[in-house]
Design a protein around this nucleic acid. Structure first.
Lengths: 344, 344
DNA sequence: ATGAAAGCGCTAACAG
DNA sequence: CTGTTAGCGCTTTCAT
């Protein structure tokens, strides 16, 4: 079962009694530029179509040092948030003629760094990375070496790399205000990866909103250690079994809130009767959970689109050299049954 | 911000006062074969490491006609089932030295076909495709042209392409038996894409189990037109508002069951009080839905692993030429609260 | 035990 | 308006 050999430009031009140059020019849309006879152009195009000619990417890449391929790395593609991001980015980039190499770093910085090397050796024209979020040295090195790169979701203060992320601070801030408005004063926050920027921004939003609401910091807890179901479960259970449990919890991502739901189910706690819950990240199932979940929705589409735009800017050199500019996309709260006024 | 130029083999060999041949041989692990002095070998390896040499993939590909890249195409990566599949496949393939080009066909055969062409022109060494499932001509053509290809999830009878899928027939069959065991006799099925094999197998399992249970076909309905939330919602609502509504529904994938849950919520129907529900596909949220959902879980890990194995077999020519063999992986039922004995 | 050189298929500089 | 040819970086045949 031998691979079918595809025609190359030499064979094609031989068949047409033309030089490879002419054929190459026509096929690269430079017919006008080199004043190639319309008739010739037509003949070439037809022949190319007929034999289903497609240029050898290896040769083309070797000559032009371009692959028309972008590497996309996410910490966990089985998290629907990142799967959705990938879908959007893939669609956008495909529209611009790029293919996508996908990588899953499994929330490990080391794996992320390896993957970047791998993709570099595979000659990607650029990278879109949703980093693990604790270390950025490898990313900065890549960016400063001149490789087009955009960071999404998790960024870092003073990062020199262009980044697109949600306005995490405001998202959390508003959620807390909403909880306070509903009468809650004993509110806990289950955070994700400590020291990752998006986590820190959300935590900062939480804290500032609590301050603004004049709730003393001795009266609330911030727990959790990463963005996993497990962490949500463990810390949720701790919170809810400790004396003076919170009447409301803010979960800093979708996995964490699933973990909290697991704890809630085990402890037979009633939502929203005994506990209100707001979670970062809207999901297709959010509305159908036991109890429908109030979520802070990120504008994934906008993030994906802007990431692609910024990347293409870099690749095509039209960049305005906005070193380290962070673009923050607003979030939106979807109030659902998991949020209720506190019982008096 | 010029791209950093990486060293090539010529520069590396010049620095070592060796020929490119020798360097190439060492770096491709052929030192022994060509009896290269151990000392030389060591020097080469050290130097390569020092300057962080990595061979130009374009040149390598051009010469060897291999990209060490596999194309993976799914109908919708934002469906967690496929996202999980991609995660598993990516991990497996990376372990074997392959990178992955990802494509999302958006449940459109045409887009799927385009994508395959795109990937072919990008010289992938092989393809793993979860097809839309209605047409396979383009896939068969590719396979017969000699391109390594494995189909997952949705296949077709008499397909000449190796395929890995769940044992959909048994999965549905067992689910129905379980419902019957719980006293249900008025059971409906909300199917996905008609005529796609995995759908048909599930429907066949449903029908045969109903027959086996001596339930007349006038007493049940099979509705639905594709694997979307919308279809689940529309047909779920139809079913539940018609006279003599079913006491149990079998939903043929996770999106459909979410749609049914939407209808159920609107109609204020109680699960499992008034309706039992079993859904294909276990998801991270299945247990936390209002009401925890009984699911038919597919062994994604096994499917992904076997798909990769079969693909590598083809690529490396170790294939046993098992034309069109379909491997069916057993499914597993996770009983949860959405399944209850019928009220008497 | 090592090297010289051909050639993979393409683009573009240079040449009419 | 079209053609000749060098050269991208690598592997491998053939030579020594």
């Amino acid at each position: 079962m031998a691979q079918q050999k595809s025609v190359n430009i030499k064979e094609l031009s031989a068949k047409l009694n033309l030089s490879v140059t002419t054929v190459s020019r026509v096929l690269n849309g430079k017919a006008k530029q080199y004043r190639i006879k319309e008739e010739t152009e037509k003949k070439v195009r037809e022949a190319a179509l007929e034999v289903n000619y497609s240029p050898n990417r290896f040769a083309r890449g070797l000559k032009l040092d371009k692959s028309e391929t972008i590497g996309v790395i996410v910490p966990d593609i089985s998290n629907p948030f990142f799967a959705d991001m990938v879908k959007i980015i893939e669609e956008q980039l495909r529209g611009k003629g790029y293919a996508i190499l996908i990588g899953d770093s499994n929330e490990k910085t080391e794996q992320e760094a390896e993957m970047i090397c791998l993709f570099e050796s595979r000659k990607v024209d650029g990278l879109i990375v949703a980093p693990v979020g604790l270390q950025f040295d490898h990313l900065e090195r890549i960016y400063l070496s001149g490789k087009p790169l955009v960071v999404i979701d998790r960024t870092q203060p003073d990062l020199t790399i262009p980044a697109i992320t949600s306005d995490n601070y405001s998202g959390a801030y508003q959620a807390v205000l909403l909880l306070v408005e509903y009468g809650h004063r004993n509110i806990a926050c289950v955070q994700g990866l400590k020291n990752s920027q998006s986590n820190n921004d959300r935590v900062a939003g939480f804290i500032d909103a609590m301050k603004y609401s004049a709730i003393d910091e001795e009266h609330y807890k911030i727990v959790g250690h990463n963005f996993s179901i497990d962490s949500g479960y463990i810390h949720g259970k701790d919170l809810l079994t400790a004396p003076g449990p919170p009447t409301a919890i803010l979960a800093l991502n979708n996995s964490i809130s699933l973990g909290i739901l697991k704890a809630v189910a085990e402890l037979e706690i009633n939502i929203p009767g005994d506990l209100s819950l707001i979670s970062f990240d809207e999901q297709s199932y959010s509305a159908y959970l036991n109890t429908p979940m109030t979520t802070i929705e990120q504008d994934k589409k906008q993030i994906g689109k802007m990431a692609v735009e910024r990347l293409i800017d870099q690749i095509e050199g039209t960049e305005n050299q906005n070193f380290g500019e962070v673009i923050r996309i607003p979030t939106k709260i979807n109030p659902r049954k998991s949020l209720a006024r506190i019982k008096v």
